[in-house]
Design a protein around this nucleic acid. Structure first.
Lengths: 139, 139
DNA sequence: CCTCACGTTGACGTCAAGGGCAAGTCGGCG
DNA sequence: CGCCGACTTGCCCTTGACGTCAACGTGAGG
C-alpha cells in the first residue's frame, strides 16, 4: 500500500496514466522501477502530482516547472535563478488580477440577470470598463 | 482617428493582426467593413480586445467566450444560461485559488533563497502543502 | 501613373499537453 | 499451465490559438 504503480497513482491524483508518463518524459515526475521496468511511486507522489497540476493551471510550461520544482524541493534556489522566479511570480500576479477582473465582469452579468434593477443597471454597466472602485460593488 | 483599421487596433491592444482576424472568425470580435472590404473598428474595440484577452487568460475557450460576450454586452443573460455562467465563475475562482497557492510556493522559495534562515525554514517547508494559515505569512 | 505600406482570404505549419492504438511484457490466480 | 488485466515503449493523432506564406486588392503620396 505504501508503494503503488502507475494506475493507482493516476486514480488517486485524478489524472491519466498517459499524463503521468508525459510528466516523467518532461522530467518533472520521477519514479522508481521494478526489475522488470514497471514504475513504482511512493505516497508523496500524489501530492507531487497535485502540485504539478497547480503549476500547470498557473500557466507555467513544463520546461519552467522542470526548472523550479527542484527549488521547491530543496527549499532554495541558485541565486542566478532568482530573477526568473521573480518574473514568474509577477506573471502569476498579473494573471490573477486579470482573472479577478474577468470574474467581476461575470459577477455583474449574473447579478443583473438574477436581480434586474433598472436604476442600479446603468451605474454598473457604465463602470464595467474600469478596474478601480468596482471591488466594493462586486464583493 | 475615431475609426481605425486592423493594424492600429492590433498595435493599441498589443495583439497580432492574425489574432484579431482569428477572433472575428470565432465570432467574438466584429468589425465594420469599408466598401472594399477592409475592417474598420471604433475606439471601443480596444477595450473589447483587452476583455477578450482577460477571458482567454482565464482559460475560457473561444466558444465559451462567444456565448457569454453578448451577455456582457447587453448586461443580462437568458435565464437558461445562468447555470453555465455560475459554472464558469466557479472555474475561474478555482483557477485563482490554484494560482495563489502556486504563488505562495514561489514566494517561499524566493524568501528562503533571499533570507536563508535555518529556524524559519523547517516551519515554512512543513506548511508548504497546506492552503490555510499561510496567507498571513506569504503576504 | 507608380510605388509601397497596409489590407484581404486561404491554406498550411507549429507547439504544448496529452489521447489512442499497437505489439509486446509482467504478474497474480485458478 | 494458461489467462487476463495492468504495465511497457513507440508512434502518430487531436485540439486550440495562433504564426507564416502565397497571391492578390487598396489607397494616399510623389
Amino acid at each position: 500500500m505504501q508503494n503503488m504503480r502507475i494506475g493507482e497513482l493516476a486514480a488517486r491524483a485524478h489524472v491519466s496514466t498517459r499524463a503521468l508518463r508525459y510528466y516523467e518524459e518532461q522530467g518533472i515526475l520521477h519514479s522508481e522501477r521494478t526489475p522488470s521496468g514497471q514504475r513504482v511511486y511512493g505516497e508523496a507522489a500524489v501530492e507531487r502530482v497535485r502540485l504539478i497540476q497547480h503549476l500547470y493551471s498557473a500557466g507555467l510550461a513544463s520546461r519552467t516547472i522542470a526548472l523550479i520544482l527542484p527549488c521547491v524541493d530543496t527549499g532554495h534556489a541558485p541565486p542566478e535563478m532568482l530573477s526568473s522566479l521573480h518574473t514568474e511570480r509577477d506573471r502569476i500576479s498579473t494573471v490573477i488580477a486579470d482573472l479577478e477582473q474577468a470574474r467581476r465582469r461575470l459577477d455583474q452579468v449574473i447579478e443583473l440577470t438574477e436581480h434586474p434593477d433598472p436604476e442600479h443597471c446603468a451605474i454598473v454597466r457604465d463602470a464595467a470598463g474600469r478596474t478601480t472602485a468596482i471591488a466594493g460593488v462586486a464583493a
